[in-house]
Write a protein that binds this DNA or RNA. Structure first.
Lengths: 324, 324
DNA sequence: AATTTTATTGAAATTGTTTCCAAATGAATT
DNA sequence: AATTCATTTGGAAACAATTTCAATAAAATT
């Protein structure tokens, strides 16, 4: 491999001079600059960031720990995070934790050893306080006051859903979905929904189970076995909404005529597949960009911006009726 | 930050001894081992991989360059690649190229500077031969004989689709989708399809435009404007299939009664959304694992395995009729 | 012409680790 | 008691860059 040494020798200059040319720092005569650049070109020299990082005692790596990239919500988030990091010349290390705490911890350690500049993390586990003071942003869940945090306004999302359903004639509301063993933003969706339902004077049932991703159907089956009546539902995610509609459809009930459903997240981004879910859309792009902004602020200034709650919106789709 | 030096001082031993303990290499007395480990614990020492990498002249980073993680095919692929890399203690740097050559090149350079051990790449551009001999695996397209390569058996996929449609009564076949400016595996899908159609004695039209991702609808509109008759279509991707069904649905034609459609890729992985596309399923997981296997072989042994074509299967879904 | 300032350069020190080498210790063998 | 051999250890060199420092050269000012 070619190093700065070979470049220096070929150009007939000292090591420092090559470095100065490469980094545009300090004085260097134009003619020597040209000699050095010519040598760089001729030798196909590529700077070694490992050495540079060691000397600088820092890297431009950022770790992203998410449950799984194989889920449209997280993949969209990761897309925008990477895009934003790229603008600032940071590189993204992707870590799929499978929602398992031990994997999250192992990844965390791995990232620390790699001297990442910071970490963006989505964890729904009881993540322990780390020793280090590595800059960390959590999305969708407050883990520690020492971490920065970005979320959508989930409580408001719950309220919007309750309002939308009641406006459309529903009187027996249902919140259906999965709960985490620890407090999360999903709780706020439920809280906002239940509170608004009470405020509007309609009944509201909550059915939750603690399950991992992709377990939607089994939760739905358990719920249906209980024969709880409802005419409008908010689910904890879009996939639950779709699964509910599917399960009831198999029993001959149609949406939105027999029941109305609103999902949460907004993962459908093309209009080709049915049903087009009514949903509370998370502002994924804004969340991603804000997370990066907060993280880089912290990395560069130590004085970081504030935790951020980003507004959310209701999208009517086809699984609710028109307003009466 | 704590270094091996502080650990050595605290444990009252030399630098080399600490290193030997940490790496389980060479001789070290049990009692000193304990002293060192105690110091590591007490100081919350975390090894610095940057320094280690510099000394070893290698890293355990692998770059993944894909058009966009915000697309289910690539996100699924990335998921399995990361999972497999994790088993071997490699970390994945994710790069979204947006299918733009300049971004691919900039990422390539970035990864080189970071001294990645290898790169897995999906590019549909005219990617130039690099100078370096960095281990590289390309998926879904042969770019250079110097790169290793993994694909699905796309030609066979095209054949399977033609057979399936003809078996189901189609006589006027259509291949519809996007083409790249360079030869890709999509060409093989078309070739297999057209060849099998001819073999079976049915007519076959090809309609292709060169577009980026997410442009499906405009291609479909242009195609429909030409009023080309067909009764069975294979599209270059699932999204094209869904868009075609949607567009014709808006015109009052229903699938599979008025026309049958088979997509390509197999991106639907839950049964909640309609239509459930008939499709040629790419063996994404196998492709991912094989790519990693090939890459690591090359990294570790230089003597690498062979380019791999992985078999593909037809999934009937709901957008084709039962066999007549 | 002497002095100051600015421009230009190479050499040396530094970053945190691994690994080689020499020295020292201890045990086993002659 | 002398020699061999296996353990155990600390120190130095190396990895590829950056940055400080001092030295020199050139230009500008007195």
């Amino acid at each position: 491999m070619q190093t700065i040494k070979e470049v220096a020798k070929m150009a007939g200059v000292g090591l420092g001079t090559v470095s100065r040319v490469l980094n545009d720092s300090g004085y260097v005569k134009e003619s020597t600059r040209q000699k050095v650049l010519a040598a760089v070109e001729a030798l196909h020299y590529v700077p070694n960031d490992v050495a540079r990082n060691l000397r600088h005692q820092s890297t431009r790596f950022v770790g992203l720990i998410i449950p799984t990239i194989w889920h449209p919500f997280f993949s969209k988030l990761a897309y925008f995070i990477e895009q934003e990091l790229y603008l600032y010349d940071y590189k993204m290390l992707l870590c799929n934790s499978e929602q398992a705490l031990d994997k999250e911890l192992r990844y965390f350690e791995m990232l620390q050893k790699s001297q990442v500049a910071g970490i963006i993390m989505i964890s729904y586990n009881d993540f322990p306080e780390p020793q280090s003071d590595l800059p960390i942003v959590t999305i969708d869940r407050i883990i520690s006051p020492r971490f920065l945090h970005v979320s959508a306004d989930n409580r408001h999302g719950g309220e919007l859903a309750a309002e939308a359903l009641v406006q459309r004639g529903c009187r027996k509301l249902l919140f259906l979905g999965s709960a985490s063993p620890v407090p999360t933003e999903v709780d706020k969706r439920r809280e906002g929904f239940v509170r608004k339902a009470r405020e509007l004077g309609v009944s509201c049932t909550v059915y939750e189970e603690t399950v991992l991703l992709k377990q939607e159907l089994s939760v739905i089956q358990n719920f249906l076995a209980q024969d709880i009546p409802f005419d409008g539902a908010l689910t904890s995610s879009d996939l639950f909404a779709a699964a509910l509609i599917k399960a009831l459809g198999d029993k001959g009930q149609t949406c939105p005529d027999d029941f109305q459903v609103i999902g949460f997240d907004g993962i459908q981004d093309n209009p080709y597949f049915k049903p087009i879910l009514a949903t509370i859309r998370q502002p994924v792009e804004k969340m991603a960009r804000r997370s990066v902004e907060l993280l880089l602020d912290k990395i560069n200034n130590q004085a970081a911006g504030e935790d951020t709650i980003i507004d959310i919106e209701f999208f009517a789709g086809e699984t609710v009726k028109p307003i009466v």
